[in-house]
Design a protein around this nucleic acid. Structure first.
Lengths: 226, 226
DNA sequence: ACACATACACTTGTATACATATAAGAACCG
DNA sequence: CGGTTCTTATATGTATACAAGTGTATGTGT
């Protein structure tokens, strides 16, 4: 693979901020190019990114702090997560998304309102034969709009963190038969509750919505393993 | 300040793993030696820790990922948090600690039970004139025992993260008049609920307990500002 | 005296050199 | 032939050199 080489290591003149090793490695893990348990040697990553080991190490340290990779002995490995850990993440997410919905209902402003309405509309306008990636993207935008509307830095931080770990498991629950239709209804109800300042109802709907997602994930696993 | 110098940069022969720059800088921030808004120059930190800039940069990257410091322009600064942000953290903590108490009631094992009972006993045995640091320490051990008993990696991770940000504000709510006595009662009730596998009651008590902590923090601020 | 330009010092970002530890393979001994 | 030890290759941890950018201070011109 031919990569843009720099002589001095200065920024590649792409016009704007070039993609950092941190982003590249993270994306590679999310895309499944780097598999769990795989050792990450600094030299190979450095060649792959076209930089020296120094920025690679910074990226690895940051990713380790994110929980995406782990240090064992002296090497970094893509972190592996057991089904139990994934389920725990789903459970915490249920709680936090419910909090986000509650806060959004209490705190949203005009811009948040427009964002949520547009994201909901985008979900509705998706063609019936849209693929999983498109569904996941629209879904992510919608929930992120709510997350933002909650105006809680702390909550935003933790939810982003959790979702990062779930993003590694690409088989979205949204492609489960009939799931997208019911998700659309729930999204509409959630929007109505939030924009109507009904915090309790918003929290309850969000809780049910994400519990459903968890249960579908569970069912998908049991299909595989039984 | 005279610091242990190494010629080769190899480990200082302290007998065991020497304190990493990450830990040192983090502690300095928690202790208030490094104040919010203060710029962190790599060179001075390197001299302070007795290492070169390379390990310092790794520490700074990790701390930035923790949210303890932030990058503005090209420099690192100790992160400042507004009262609103702190309150948001308290709010999220209420939710997560309630979840932890619920899970602990459902999942605790023998070792967890011993840890919780011992931590509770340690709280009770503190002398009446114990200082804030001692109260905070005993309190931390107790809640950490519950956090561990929840057996949720995800929850543990997020709670540790949240508490890290609250640890910067050393004026503990526990020194508020009468607070420690009522906290002791609540700890005992919480322990009883958890060990009795009463998940709902445990969650409710934890929620009230941490809501109280938040409200005391709020009251302390209003004393100062009004 | 004030504004603007230029030079310099300081700091960061990256590359690279080198010491050390670890693991794998080869050789040797039982 | 198997096990153990030594050797060596490879990867990490740290230090250092150097380039580039930024902010400040100084000097000059009006």
């Amino acid at each position: 693979m031919v990569l843009p080489q720099t002589q001095t290591g200065r920024a590649i003149p792409t016009g704007r901020q070039s993609v950092t090793p941190y982003d590249r490695i993270k994306q590679a893990i999310l895309d499944g190019e780097l598999l769990p348990g795989q050792p990450l040697t600094e030299q190979s990553l450095a060649e792959w990114c076209g930089v020296s080991r120094t920025p690679i190490r910074e990226a690895l340290v940051a990713l380790a702090q994110d929980g995406m990779i782990e240090r064992r002995n002296r090497a970094f490995f893509v972190r592996e997560r057991s089904p139990e850990e994934i389920l725990d993440i789903y459970d915490v997410r249920i709680t936090l998304e419910a909090s986000a919905a509650r806060l959004a209902a209490e705190r949203y402003n005009k811009i948040d309102r427009i964002r949520i309405e547009q994201a909901l509309a985008a979900c509705k306008e998706l063609p019936a034969d849209a693929d999983g990636a498109a569904l996941a993207q629209a879904n992510r935008v919608f929930h992120h709009a709510i997350q933002t509307a909650a105006h809680s830095q702390a909550l935003d931080d933790l939810l982003t963190r959790l979702n990062l770990h779930l993003a590694r498991y690409p088989a979205t629950t949204l492609t489960s038969p009939g799931r997208w239709q019911s998700a659309l209804v729930e999204h509409a109800e959630l929007t109505e509750a939030i924009l109507g300042n009904d915090a309790d109802r918003a929290a309850r709907i969000a809780e049910e919505h994400f519990t459903e997602a968890r249960d579908i994930r569970l069912a998908l696993w049991e299909q595989d393993t039984i």
